[in-house]
Nucleic acid binder design. Structure first.
Lengths: 191, 191
DNA sequence: TATGTTAATGAATTATGGTTCAGTGTTCAT
DNA sequence: ATGAACACTGAACCATAATTCATTAACATA
């Protein structure tokens, strides 16, 4: 059980943002779900945007850490690493489905908002995926006629939308099953 | 040259929505760019949302038409059809980059908003893509271990993000080049 | 030209909901 | 038990910008 207000607010906000979208989400509703007064939120967050920012940051940090860990491991093929990271994404979703929806729907937020810390984390993660793909190309595992950055964006988008389309009934599948499915789309496309 | 107010408003709104995002876009700015009074907009559209809705509808209708046309053609492989549709998407972007950006950034709008006509068109398009993939599986051109709906969402997401990552310098590539690149990601993934 | 009809305007109105803050409750050391 | 320090509250405030509408312009008809 969440026992501190900061996390309670984040959790309530995740639910409301996921259901209503950031702009239609009301602070009063978030407060209600968190079981606190509306004003209390402002003791923990500068404003509504800051809540969203923190949600993004936490999720992306998790992905970034995993990518960083993979980078350090030497005796693993790019394919194995991708499988690992795919697993981490599925884990993230299982830990909070609402957050997965927000990451998708408010894509424009982290994309356009030039919040230092957040965009650094996102950019870093993208770079790390790019490197991973580059390695795969060099190792002759992936196609040569590929721009790593394009591929990265294509993959991120694919993963996101796929998650969103499942969203609610995502939890009725096993983690292993989902990880496997996702991995195949990333690596093999339609063929 | 656009000669009627309705289209002038749509065009101005596309620019402003693309630059500011739907929520930050001001009706007064749209009116200014269209060269008309703010109140005039309300003679042509019920409200701000209705403008966005119409922009979405026009774009998706175009994709839907293409998909419908492809469905009717018999002597074409699923692969060839996918290549055609990919080309149509690139055409759509080239015809109006602002609109492409809006489609991406305001994804949450058409997804959450249950506007009858719009969601019908979008759903229809998704179904048509699913069928196309099903055909490909039956014809042994695509992997058998694939759920067409999953694949569809993965592809749409991939295309979206890939477009977004390029967005502004998209026009510096040739249509053929872009179509080709996109087609390869869809069909072959990383391998 | 006079008159009716329709289109357009933009200042004023209004709805919304994020944010503030004066007041209330809680905690805890003395 | 007291009161200082801090946490919390939610009604009131306020900024923003969508929408309205009384007024004016443009145009058509006779």
């Amino acid at each position: 059980m969440i026992d501190n207000k900061y996390d309670m607010i984040l959790d309530a906000a995740s639910q409301v943002f996921a259901r209503e979208g950031f702009h239609k989400a009301k602070i009063s509703k978030i407060a209600e779900i968190a079981g606190i007064g509306a004003g209390t939120i402002y003791l923990y967050f500068k404003n509504k945007e800051a809540i969203l920012e923190e949600i993004f940051l936490r999720s992306w940090s998790r992905i970034e850490s995993k990518l960083l860990a993979m980078k350090k491991i030497k005796n693993m093929t790019p394919l194995q690493k991708i499988a690992e990271i795919t697993g981490e994404i599925i884990e993230l979703i299982f830990s909070n489905v609402s957050v997965a929806k927000i990451l998708l729907y408010e894509y424009s937020f982290w994309n356009s908002n030039k919040k230092e810390k957040l965009s650094k984390t996102v950019e870093n993660s993208q770079k790390l995926i790019e490197e991973l793909i580059s390695d795969g190309i060099k190792a002759n595992i992936f196609r040569k006629d590929m721009n790593p950055k394009d591929a990265t964006m294509f993959i991120i988008g694919g993963v996101w939308f796929w998650i969103a389309s499942k969203s609610d009934d995502l939890l009725s599948y096993s983690k292993e099953e989902l990880t496997d499915t996702l991995f195949h789309y990333i690596v093999y496309g339609l063929k």
